[in-house]
């Protein structure tokens, strides 16, 4: 997994000493680190810890309002008061979002990176550049592109359904309780596939070409070379990509927020927490709007999500390890 250049440097040799020379006065070194460390502690570590604390309070985003410790009430509300059918659906939706994004995004990325990396293909840099483009465009731009493509009744998808597929009353995809969710998943994959692909390409480029040559002299088929040489050698990249996609898609709500605002049964746990804390559709499992910027409740939703991410990450890592050993 060492894709980065690890060229040994002359500096390394000098670094072996146990107590490095204090070349610069410590106070100035520390002073320079201070803004970064302070910022990190204040805006990263502290908020991260406080989320757990706030989840046991009824704090609201409305300043000046008093708040108090309310024990497990937020969690109770989440797990007991919410309609069980909707709660199950929302949790399943979150899982489905992560599952489909991970599987589809990585499959396409792997397929395309193997092709793009193969010697015969012309214009591979162009292809790679194009596939990667949406990554840099960002959620707002991608969402707006998506809305334009799926708009009714002038968007190309609507026209396609109407004129080519001859559907009499085509649904407005992005405001349909059935089709909006798959469309958002597709947007997520469309945006991030290039990211996974770049990681795969890096891993593929790290494979020693002579391995293939000797294998092809031995008469190995393309499939055999792929499964016996390529796959094992890029397994760590697959593992990283899986992890990134799972964590990324479980937590990400930018596209949901920008495309549907959490409406039309597209809200996942991450979006629910966001909408509860800052307003918007889909703050609860039923899709209802939550009033009053209930950030304590949102913090509880975040904690449920965090627990989920933790469990899924651990399980997926164990599975990936096991699959690696079995090879």
């Amino acid at each position: 997994m060492n894709i980065q250049k690890t060229a040994a440097s002359p500096g390394r040799m000098l670094n072996q000493k146990k107590h490095p020379l204090r070349l610069f006065p410590l106070w100035i070194v520390l002073l320079c680190m201070l803004p970064g460390v302070l910022h990190y502690c204040i805006f990263r570590l502290y908020p991260s810890m406080m989320t757990a604390y706030y989840s046991f309070t009824d704090i609201s985003g409305v300043p000046g309002t008093t708040w108090k410790f309310i024990g497990l009430a937020n969690y109770k509300e989440f797990f007991i008061l919410q309609n069980p059918r909707d709660l199950k659906a929302a949790l399943l939706r979150t899982a489905a979002y992560a599952f489909f994004v991970t599987i589809i995004q990585n499959s396409i990325a792997l397929l395309l990176s193997v092709i793009v990396n193969s010697a015969f293909l012309k214009g591979r840099n162009f292809a790679r550049g194009v596939y990667f483009m949406p990554v840099i465009l960002g959620a707002a731009v991608v969402a707006t592109i998506w809305k334009a493509i799926f708009s009714t009744p002038t968007g190309p998808i609507y026209l396609f359904m109407q004129n080519v597929l001859h559907i009499a009353n085509p649904p407005a995809i992005l405001s349909s309780r059935v089709y909006a969710f798959p469309a958002v998943i597709a947007a997520q994959i469309w945006q991030n596939m290039g990211y996974s692909m770049v990681i795969f390409i890096a891993a593929l480029q790290g494979i020693d070409g002579t391995l293939y040559e000797s294998a092809s002299i031995d008469g190995a088929s393309n499939w055999k070379m792929f499964s016996k040489i390529t796959l094992p050698l890029i397994w760590s990249a697959i593992s990283i990509n899986t992890l990134l996609a799972i964590i990324g898609s479980l937590q990400s709500y930018e596209l949901i927020m920008t495309i549907t605002r959490g409406n039309f049964n597209t809200s996942t746990l991450g979006m629910m927490a966001f909408a509860t804390a800052f307003g918007g559709g889909g703050g609860t499992a039923s899709g209802a709007v939550v009033n009053g910027l209930r950030q304590g409740y949102a913090a509880a939703e975040s904690m449920v999500l965090f627990a989920g991410v933790l469990v899924v990450t651990i399980i997926s890592q164990i599975l990936m390890k096991r699959a690696e050993v079995e090879r």
């Binding site: 008061l81 919410q82 309609n83 059918r85 499992a285 039923s286 899709g287």
Partner: peptide, 12 residues
């Protein structure tokens, strides 16, 4: 009105 915690159909 819809009651607190009401499901999707009830909320709509």
């Amino acid at each position: 009105y819809g009651p607190k915690g009401v499901g999707e159909y009830g909320a709509n």
